[in-house]
Amino acid sequence: MTKMLTVDTNPVDCYLRVDRIPHIWCAGCGIGPATGCFLRAIDRAELNPDKVAVVSGIGCSGRVAGYIKLDSFHTTHGRALPFATGLKLGNPELNVVVFSGDGDIVAIGGNHLIHSARRNIDMTVICINNFNYGMTGGQMGPTTPLDARSATSPYGNFEYPFNLPYLVAASGATYVARWTVLHLRELERSIAEALTKPGFSFIEVLGPCPTVYGRRNKLPRGMDEMRSYQERSVIRDGADPKDVELSLNGPIVVGKFVDIERPTLWDCYQQMLDRVTKP
């Protein structure tokens, strides 16, 4: 392990581009704790950090790649997954992690999400769901709960949102979990598990967005959103993903929902290669 055991720094600093900290995220943003959990999970999963590549798209969560001191790629809006697909197939030894926001990976990049899950390409997706587009000022998106207010749904959102674990599980992901940034221990363990699990792993992380989402939905401070997670969360490991829909004020079912075995894209490619090269 290359981790330095110096006393005077935060233990995750060795994986951070400290010259870029403090970061651009608002006070109380959920992306920071989720990033911290990932960084600690690298050690927990005993990965070689030199072989970990982080890819992200655009938006607040897209900035994660820029703060992590590993091979990191900040790509275009919604396209982290296909970029990561190229990385993984170009060098299958890499442990590819995609950090992405809900708008990035589910709206503009939704097609890539379902197809990456279908292929069961071996990578870990950490999707930080803050229920809206934060970077552009809080517009509604495909995860905004019904009736929630946003910059583009000022009278309440009239569209049904996606239930992400259900979507991804139905598309073929072999590991699906959901946590909030309040469930730090569970989240860290879950990410570590996903990092070592072959196949497409998807972890939805609910995180506060006080500045543009909370403020419009009676949760003006990050703390209010955190407290609401505390009150509304129910841990139900193994819950059927179709039953874990989120709503504006209803219960938040968290836990590990899917953990199954299925040959990965690379396994299947190798099988095909065997047919090609062995007459």
Binding site: F73, R79, F83, T85, G86, L89, G90, N91, L94, H115
Partner: peptide, 15 residues
């Protein structure tokens, strides 16, 4: 869109 991104990703692995 995905094709173009995938070749960029692959190129960064030296391929």
């Amino acid at each position: 869109i995905a094709s173009m991104n995938a070749i960029l990703g692959a190129s960064w692995t030296g391929v």
